[in-house]
Computed example of a mutant assay.
Amino acid sequence: MDKPVHLIKLCVGAEAVEDLLAWQNHPRAKGPDGQPRHVTRMWPKREAEIVGQGSLYWVFKGLVLCRQPIVRFDEVIGHDGIRRCGIVLDPTITRVTPAPKRPFQGWRYLQAADAPLDLREGREADDPLPDTLARELADIGLL
């Protein structure tokens, strides 16, 4: 099996992973099936390489901090009649080794080889490093 393709996206308006968790528990962040979803304008052309094996990596204030498996893509028609893509996510959030990422718009593809590694078991409960320290350690390859 080929390596999966992932998506990466800025988590706008969130300071930390806990903010994302809180938002995804809100009914407005869920689809009709109760699964969390993120609605975006563009539909990934590489859908078959992503669904069921890829994840959405979330960037918080310049650092990739977590990922969520992508379950499927749903068509969402907005109040304006425009077709959009609902990225349906597994509610499980996996923290990853913090990795710096510059701002960008929308989502981007992320190859498996470029994806940050999941945090080692037991480290998920560690107190997070301050953003500036985590960014500096990631910049020099120590995270």
Rank of each mutant, 00 (worst) to 15 (best):
M1W: 09
K3E: 02
P4E: 06
V5T: 03
H6Q: 07
K9F: 14
L10Q: 12
C11P: 00
C11A: 15
G13L: 00
V17T: 04
V17R: 05
L20W: 06
L21F: 13
A22V: 09
N25L: 09
N25M: 11
H26V: 05
P27H: 05
R28V: 12
A29F: 04
K30L: 00
G31V: 15
P32R: 15
D33W: 13
D33Y: 14
Q35Y: 11
P36S: 13
P36G: 12
V39N: 10
R41W: 09
R41N: 03
M42P: 01
M42S: 13
K45P: 06
K45Q: 10
R46Q: 09
A48Q: 08
I50W: 07
G52A: 07
G52K: 12
Q53F: 07
Q53R: 15
S55K: 10
S55H: 06
S55L: 04
W58R: 02
W58E: 00
V59P: 00
F60G: 03
G62N: 03
L63W: 08
L63A: 02
L63C: 06
V64L: 06
L65P: 07
L65S: 00
C66M: 03
P69Y: 08
P69Q: 02
V71H: 02
R72V: 11
F73S: 02
D74N: 14
G78Q: 09
H79E: 05
D80A: 07
G81V: 05
I82N: 03
I82H: 12
I82R: 05
R83D: 06
R83A: 11
C85Q: 01
C85H: 08
G86I: 10
V88C: 06
V88F: 14
I93Q: 04
T94C: 09
T94M: 03
R95H: 11
R95D: 00
V96T: 11
V96S: 11
T97Q: 09
A99E: 01
P100C: 02
P100M: 14
P103Y: 11
Q105E: 05
G106F: 09
G106Q: 02
W107E: 03
W107S: 05
Y109M: 06
L110I: 14
L110D: 07
Q111R: 15
Q111P: 02
D114Y: 14
A115I: 10
A115V: 03
L117C: 03
E121P: 03
E121N: 05
E121R: 01
R123W: 13
A125S: 08
A125G: 06
A125L: 01
D126L: 06
P128R: 10
P128Q: 12
L129F: 13
P130H: 09
D131H: 13
D131C: 06
D131N: 05
T132N: 01
T132H: 00
L133D: 00
L133G: 01
A138W: 05
D139Y: 09
D139K: 09
G141V: 10
G141L: 12
G141A: 15
G141M: 10
L143K: 12
